[in-house]
Design a protein around this nucleic acid. Structure first.
Length: 144
DNA sequence: GCCAACGTTGGC
DNA sequence: GCCAACGTTGGC
């Protein structure tokens, strides 16, 4: 899962201890969140950072449910086409699991285990995407 | 259903 | 700030 650290960093997750992952407004990303189960582990990636890269591991502590910001007109994530009766967007709740030694995007690209990783695919802009077990393990190993 | 216009993401 | 990628919107 990607986050811009200026907005919400891994350190912020450690500070607040749990966080509803608001603002996902892409159906594919939403569907991936719906597949997540309590206890699943997540690689926390800092996008739009200098440099971008992986900051840590988080875990799912609450499964997908409607993202309340979609109903809030004062939120920048407000969606006038959504309603509590027929919610369109979900969030999951994350907690920190393990901080990793920072792994820059350059370092990730240098890892042979990640050759086919979606995260590194050209043009990929999804903020939530699945990782293969081996990819996940390789990233954790690189940051441990 | 097609597709041009537009907006967003995110690396650089 | 630029720009490639690509999802969404809306006219037709």
């Amino acid at each position: 899962m990607k986050s811009e650290p200026d907005v919400f960093s891994y350190d912020d997750l450690v500070t607040v201890r749990r966080e509803g992952w608001d603002g996902v407004r892409n159906y594919q990303a939403r569907n991936f969140m719906r597949e997540m189960r309590k206890g699943d582990l997540v690689i926390f990636y800092h996008s739009n950072a200098t440099p971008p890269g992986v900051a840590g591991v988080a875990k799912i502590v609450k499964e997908a449910e409607p993202d309340p910001t979609q109903f809030d007109p004062s939120s920048k994530y407000f969606d006038p086409k959504s309603s509590p009766e027929d919610p369109r967007w979900d969030w999951v709740t994350l907690a920190p699991k393990k901080r990793l030694k920072f792994i820059s995007l350059d370092d990730l690209r240098a890892m042979p285990e990640l050759e086919d990783c979606r995260l590194l695919a050209r043009g990929n802009r999804l903020s939530v995407m699945p990782l293969a077990e081996a990819e996940f393990a390789a990233i954790v190993a690189a940051g441990s």
